[in-house]
């Protein structure tokens, strides 16, 4: 029996172990859950070390290929170690330096990029002309209605979250309309969530039918 087939057997047993929770909580489910958490953490840490820490830190300060060490890399290494010092109360204050550098640097990169490349294009998209004046209007009813709905939905939803005015009268009606659009959005989100969860179940069934029954047991189903 090859290692691959053994892997399929293990995956199958763990799949049934996790699925047994649907009936009720039980020790097999607990074992499968703990194995999953342990393996996921171990896998993540291993990948993190070999793909990030080794090539970007260790190999730079202690090169094995005869190249000159990059001493500047010691700065982020030391700052990274400072964060770990949070577990020692008397030295925990050193982590603030690391966080100051991290937050400061990140904000410098983040603020202009997000404003220029996320916020402004989204605002521009919401404020597009309702229709193209250079084209005949009767050929643009579809886009016109779509853009009008986006405009009204954006405005009504923003009114719902605008608390400086009492939600009465016209403002109240707009706010109610905003709630309606939010509900439609939640409905669409729920529909997509159902599809996502079904996809996971279908994925497991495909694994069981193709890999377990087909490859591990040599049975052809479907």
């Amino acid at each position: 029996m090859s290692w691959e087939i053994i892997g399929i057997w293990v995956a199958t047993l763990l799949t049934f172990g996790i699925a047994s929770f649907l009936y009720k909580d039980n020790p097999v489910y607990k074992i499968a859950e703990h194995i999953y958490l342990g393996v996921a953490l171990g896998y993540g840490l291993t990948i993190y070390f070999w793909d990030s820490i080794k090539p970007n830190a260790i190999d730079k300060v202690l090169p094995s290929d005869g190249s000159a060490p990059e001493y500047l890399v010691w700065i982020p290494i030391v700052l990274g170690l400072f964060i770990l010092l949070r577990v020692i109360p008397s030295l925990a204050w050193l982590s603030r330096w690391s966080f100051a550098v991290y937050i400061g640097g990140n904000m410098g990169i983040l603020v202009p990029s997000v404003i220029a490349n996320l916020l402004m294009p989204q605002l521009a998209s919401a404020m597009r002309p309702l229709y193209d004046t250079a084209q005949p209007l009767n050929a643009q009813w579809g886009p016109l209605i779509g853009q009008a709905v986006i405009l009204i939905a954006t405005f009504a939803t923003m009114i719902y979250f605008f608390f400086s005015l009492e939600h009465r009268g016209f403002v109240g009606k707009l706010s109610r309309l905003g709630v309606l659009f939010i509900m439609i959005s939640f409905g669409a989100g729920f529909g997509y969530t159902v599809m996502a969860r079904m996809s996971l179940l279908i994925g497991r069934f495909q694994f069981l039918i193709i890999d377990f029954f087909g490859r591990a047991l040599g049975l052809r189903i479907g």
Partner: peptide, 24 residues
């Protein structure tokens, strides 16, 4: 994933994503 599709439609409508493949 299908769960994220709704939140990415505004980016597609704005032309920031050229293509959007939602879920399965």
């Amino acid at each position: 994933t299908a769960v994220s599709t709704v939140q990415y439609y505004p980016f597609y409508n704005a032309g920031q994503f050229t293509g959007l493949l939602g879920g399965m």
